[in-house]
């Protein structure tokens, strides 16, 4: 579904991302971990054509992301608050996104009904604009909005950050469900090794822009990652 070829990004001669080749098949739940500055957000941003790579290209569903805009029809993403429209209420925002993806109100309402637990009665019908919601609640809205219109590719940057424990657990459930769907490719980045090993089938570790590990998740994966990040790796 997603092909990364010789992708590199340099800022003023300093390389922040340099990936030879990563191929993510359709339906995979793909996890991206790494310390700050490892290039996770840079990778996602270039995947969404928000920044221009220095070399190489990314194909999403067969389209090169910086040449065609076709990938936008099957891709949904939530990177940060700049994906929310502050002066809309959550409902209006969902309907707006729905409109853009060809979903009518009833479709959106049906989808939202499934997330009542997740929203914990703090989102819908509260007569508040998005800009007045707390960071965690904003995030919930952004994440759920990516599910509107059943996209083939869902990209979430740090979805677990800023969420309370209950919501983290519920979100894990949501992503796991997406992961089992063989039509949906999910890309998640996280600092939380436990969460990411629980929900992803495959985990790639980045360090300073380079890929240092590419693991198919197994019961030992968490241990392996923990020892890697604590710097006590024994091979």
């Amino acid at each position: 579904m997603i092909e990364i070829h010789n992708l590199s990004k340099k800022y003023n001669g300093v390389s922040v991302l340099n990936l030879e080749r990563i191929s993510i098949p359709k339906g995979q739940a793909f996890g991206l971990v790494g310390n700050n500055g490892a290039g996770k957000t840079t990778l996602f941003s270039s995947l969404l054509d928000l920044i221009q790579p220095t070399t190489g290209y990314i194909k999403n569903g067969g389209y090169e992301v910086n040449k065609s805009e076709e990938w936008k029809t099957h891709t949904a993403s939530f990177i940060d608050e700049s994906f929310l429209i502050g002066y809309l209420t959550p409902e209006e925002y969902f309907y707006f996104i729905g409109d853009l993806r060809g979903q009518n109100k009833a479709d959106v309402d049906a989808l939202l009904a499934g997330f009542e637990d997740f929203f914990n009665d703090e989102i819908i019908g509260k007569r508040k604009y998005l800009r007045d919601l707390s960071k965690g609640n904003q995030k919930k809205v952004g994440i759920v909005a990516t599910l509107i219109g059943t996209p083939d590719v869902i990209i979430l940057d740090e979805p677990f950050a800023n969420l309370d424990p209950t919501t983290q657990i519920r979100l894990k459930g949501i992503i796991k469900k997406l992961a089992t769907d063989k039509n949906i490719t999910v890309l998640v980045s996280s600092h939380d090794l436990q969460h990411v090993t629980e929900v992803c089938e495959r985990i790639v570790v980045l360090e300073k822009g380079e890929q240092v590990k590419d693991i198919m998740t197994s019961p030992e994966t968490l241990k392996e990652l923990e020892s890697y990040f604590s710097g006590e790796e024994v091979i």
């Binding site: 969404l48 936008k72 029809t73 891709t75 993403s77 700049s82 994906f83 929310l84 429209i85 853009l100």
Partner: peptide
């Protein structure tokens, strides 16, 4: 401007 990334990634 506040949500330009959103606009740029939606099918607009």
């Amino acid at each position: 401007s506040a949500y330009y990334p959103l606009m740029m990634t939606q099918n607009i």
